[in-house]
Every structure is written in C-alpha cells, then in structure tokens.
C-alpha cells in the first residue's frame, strides 16, 4: 500500500480539482435553467445560481471513493453513504419548500448507515478526564449529531462565502486534531472536506457566483458530523464548530422553536443607505451571530464574513488545544 502522506496528497488534489472545475460548469447549467435566487445583500438586483451541492458532492465522492480503494475501511464507506443521503435531503429542500421538521428528521435517517455499518466506538472521550462508555446512549447520540451538524452549517449560510469559508477552517482544524490523536486513517478521510470547501469558497466568496443551497450546506455539515463520529472526536468537533453552534443556539433560544429561516417574520439584519449590514432594532427579529457582530455598528458583508472567520480560527485553536488534552489525566 502507498504511504499515507502520498494518499493524502492524491485525494486532496482530486477533491480540490473536481470542485474547482465542475463548479463553473454547474454555474452555467443552473443559470441556463434559470435556477437562480436574488442576492439580498447587494444594492443591485443580482441573481445567483443555486444550489452548488452537486459539485460539492462530486468532489467528496470522487476523493472518498479513491481513498476507499486504498484503505477499504468501513468508516470511509459510512462517511460516503451518510454524506450522500444528506445531499439528497438538501436537494429535496432546494427543489421544494419543506417544513421545518423535515430536515432534522431526514438527516436523522441519513445517520442510520453509520450504525448499520458499525463505524463507531460507543463511548465519549473527554479532554483531561478520560472516557465514558455509553453503548445505548451513543446510538441516540449518532442520530442527533448528523441533524445538528447539518443544520448548524446550513444556519450560518447567510452571507457570501461564510459557510464554505468557515467549513474550510473547521475541517482543517479537525484534520489536525485527528493527526494529534493518531487517528491517521480518518484524518485522511477528513482532508477532502477541507479541500472541497476551499475550492467551493473560490466561487462562493464575495461576490458569490454560486450559493451552496441546502444540498451544499447539509452535505458539508453531515460529512463533518460523520467524521466526528467515525473518528471518535465528537467533543473536539463540537468545539471547532462553536461559532456556528452559538448562531444556532441564539436563533433557537430567541424564536423558541424549530423553524426555517424563510419563516422568520422580522429580519435580524437590515441595510444602511450605503448598503452596509446593520443590526435591526426590531424586537421580533431573532438574535443571530451576524446580528451580534453588527451590534457595535454597520459593516460590509465582507467585513462580517472575516469576523466570523476569526471566530472560526479561534475555535479551531481551542479544538487543537483540546486534542492535546485527550488522553491526559490530571
């Protein structure tokens, strides 16, 4: 078998190149079919093709299948199947407006292959203190993790480039953490997520040429969750994702139920005359991460995105510190 670093380079190049070259083709195909949506954060009427999920999935599938040829591990198979199912859940939501509960329930079903393939270790590893064996509870945890990570990434997909840029930071941090805890095979399996996100960011950054849509965001989020489970780094993965977790937490604690963003009655962000983003004063609007960032005054879309990336880098650093604390008992 080839050395792991060489396999890593091969699958990283495959993941990046696939998305880099298929996304422009997808943009053309979507525009031709008039599958476009308005970019509400631009002063002019700009229509952006959506969804970018197919090119994201293509990059993940080609690279992960290549990795499977080399390693033939059940963990990689579980990542491939769960991620693909999450893509179809997102695609269904992209094509047709579905209820707020559809995505969490369907994503819970997408997590089932991980259980059926037995690609998990039924205990939770905590930093400093060791692990807890929870055989029955862990099955329930798997069912919860995929909907949570999927919807968490979907919920930060509110500004140009944020979901793909944030995912790039979080997934590379997760890869480093997996290397730190010596889980090299799953570290390899996590590489395509970072490179797919990075390649997609090229087209998603301000001004976006394509939006990932639910199919893109759920694919990225579900793959992240799958890696967390099969790599046995659930707590570390949650820490790297904290800014997005805060966004979901703030949103849910202010609206107090599971709803789609399109069901919100008042927008948390409004525009200034020069089309900067500004936090609304409407008390009916939900509290979100972007609204909190804008509480100190208006910013451009790009500036808000960079603050979210800084938060992502901070959480990534905490996740890496946490990975060094694994297996260390006080």
């Amino acid at each position: 078998m080839m050395d792991r670093p060489i396999i890593g380079i091969i699958i990283s190049v495959i993941a990046f190149v696939t998305v880099y070259f298929t996304t422009p083709l997808l943009i053309k195909a979507l525009a031709k079919r008039n599958m476009v949506v308005k970019d509400y954060n631009k002063p002019q009427t700009i229509m952006v093709p959506r969804p970018g999920g197919p090119s994201i999935l293509a990059g993940i599938l080609v690279s992960e299948i290549t990795l499977y040829v080399f390693l033939q591990s059940v963990e990689i198979l579980a990542i491939i199947i769960t991620t693909s199912l999450a893509f179809f859940v997102g695609l269904a939501d992209d094509r047709k407006v579905l209820g707020g509960w559809f995505k969490p329930l369907a994503l819970a079903v997408a997590a089932v292959p991980i259980i059926l393939l037995g690609a998990y270790v039924p205990h939770l590893e905590f930093p400093l203190f060791g692990m807890v064996k929870i055989p029955e509870l862990y099955l329930a945890l798997i069912i919860f993790i995929i909907p949570i990570t999927g919807n968490t990434i979907n919920s930060i997909d509110v500004l140009n480039g944020v979901a793909s840029g944030f995912m790039t930071i979080a997934s590379f941090a997760l890869t480093i953490c997996l290397v730190v805890i010596h889980n090299y095979d799953v570290a390899l399996a996590s590489l395509p997520l970072g490179f797919v996100s990075l390649a997609f960011y090229k087209y998603h950054k301000v001004p976006s040429k394509i939006f990932p849509g639910d199919s893109g965001a759920l694919t990225l989020g579900a793959m992240y969750g799958s890696i967390a489970i099969v790599g046995h780094v659930e707590i570390i993965a949650a820490i790297a994702l904290l800014p997005a977790v805060i966004n979901s937490f703030l949103f849910l604690s202010s609206v107090k139920r599971i709803i789609e963003h399109r069901q919100i009655k008042a927008n948390p962000v409004v525009h200034t005359e020069d089309f900067k983003l500004q936090a609304t004063t409407d008390k009916a609007a939900p509290v979100t991460l972007v609204r909190l960032i804008l509480a100190q005054g208006p910013l451009t879309e790009k500036e808000v995105g960079f603050i979210i990336f800084k938060l992502g880098l901070f959480s990534a650093a905490l996740a890496i510190i946490t990975s060094f604390m694994m297996g260390v008992k006080p």
Binding site: F129, L242, I293, S315
Partner: peptide, 27 residues
C-alpha cells in the same frame, strides 16, 4: 469587534471541559 463573542466561545469551551469531568467522575 466581536470581543464579547470570543469571550462567550471561551466560556462555552470551559463549560464543555467541566461538563466532561462531571460525566466521567460523577455520572
């Protein structure tokens, strides 16, 4: 800009680690 959010993330991180300790040693 965003300093309170960095503080909030730090608090969340500390609470996660403390929660882990409670789970391992008590529950």
């Amino acid at each position: 800009r965003g300093l309170p959010i960095f503080a909030y993330i730090s608090v969340m991180w500390i609470l996660i680690i403390i929660g882990g300790g409670l789970l391992v040693f008590i529950i």
